[in-house]
Simulated assay, not measured.
Amino acid sequence: MADDEAPVADRPGSRPVVIGASVIVVLLVGVVLGMFLTQTALRPESAATPGAGSVEVGFAQDMSVHHLQAVTMASWERGHTSDPQLEQLAFDIESTQREQVGRMKGWLMLWGQPEQATGEYMTWMTSDAGHGHMAMAPPSSAAAAGAPMPGMATNDELAKLRSRSGTELDVYFLQLMLRHHQGGTEMAQYAHDHTTVPAVKALTQSILTSQGAEMTVMRDMLTARGAQPLPFP
């Protein structure tokens, strides 16, 4: 990723048009796998194709945006850190989440849904009308001021990340990415608990497992560097 690539421009309560290489350069294998898994999950004996407003569609749309910011941060860290441990961690996060975005975009294509919907983020976490469930409040209250979803960094925070170097860069990356994972796992847990589509159930479990392990690693790395996690709303 080029150093001058602009971060996703976000503002609370609205959905930006996501542009840039981080959106269009999604691993093809992820899209193919997403389409294959969806076709398998949506055979005649399976649940009907998820529609607009469903947990599955909302999760795929919003988590793709959430993941792509992690890809942006991890790519920057990988290209600027001098610490082999951080370089490997950033590579793992970048490659894993890019592939998962490919899956989700493949689902949305097969479901006939746009990659992004208009309106507020995370409405699928407060309304399960598509599955006949009772409305539930999202597990996290609200995103930090200036961030569209819980755990995501603001544009100011992304600029601050780009301005740092050495240990300061590594520490701030770990702090931002740990908080980012905390928000992402809340979204994944909600989707995992409310979806009826096996492919979505499998992906959300994979996210919970991999990001749970990465959060433990990041906390240990922060401790080793004499730093603390950022507050999580």
Rank of each mutant, 00 (worst) to 15 (best):
M1H: 10
A2W: 11
D4P: 02
V8T: 09
R11F: 13
P12D: 15
P12Q: 14
S14C: 11
G20V: 09
A21C: 04
S22Q: 11
I24K: 14
V26P: 10
V29G: 14
G30W: 04
V31K: 00
L33Q: 15
F36Q: 12
T38F: 10
Q39I: 03
L42Y: 05
S46W: 07
P50W: 03
P50Q: 01
A52H: 12
A52I: 10
G53T: 00
V55G: 05
G58M: 08
F59V: 13
M63T: 08
M63Q: 08
M63W: 03
V65G: 09
H67T: 01
H67F: 06
L68C: 08
T72E: 15
S75D: 14
S75Q: 11
E77W: 06
R78G: 08
S82P: 09
S82M: 10
P84C: 07
Q85G: 06
D92M: 05
S95Y: 02
S95H: 07
Q97N: 03
G102D: 04
R103G: 09
M104H: 03
M104R: 06
L110E: 14
W111G: 03
Q113L: 03
P114Q: 01
Q116V: 12
Y121Q: 10
W124G: 01
W124K: 05
M125K: 01
T126N: 00
S127L: 12
M134F: 15
A135S: 15
M136N: 06
A137H: 12
P138Y: 07
S140N: 10
S140A: 13
A143E: 09
A143V: 01
A144V: 14
T154K: 00
N155W: 08
E157M: 07
E157R: 05
A159N: 10
A159T: 13
A159R: 13
L161D: 00
S163T: 06
S163F: 06
G166Y: 12
T167I: 11
T167W: 04
E168Y: 01
V171E: 04
Y172L: 13
F173V: 02
L174E: 03
L174W: 09
R179P: 03
R179E: 12
H180I: 09
G184T: 12
M187N: 02
M187P: 00
T195M: 01
T195Y: 04
T196I: 15
K201H: 15
Q205N: 10
I207A: 01
L208N: 01
L208K: 02
T209W: 06
R219K: 14
A224M: 09
G226A: 08
Q228V: 11
F232H: 13
F232S: 07
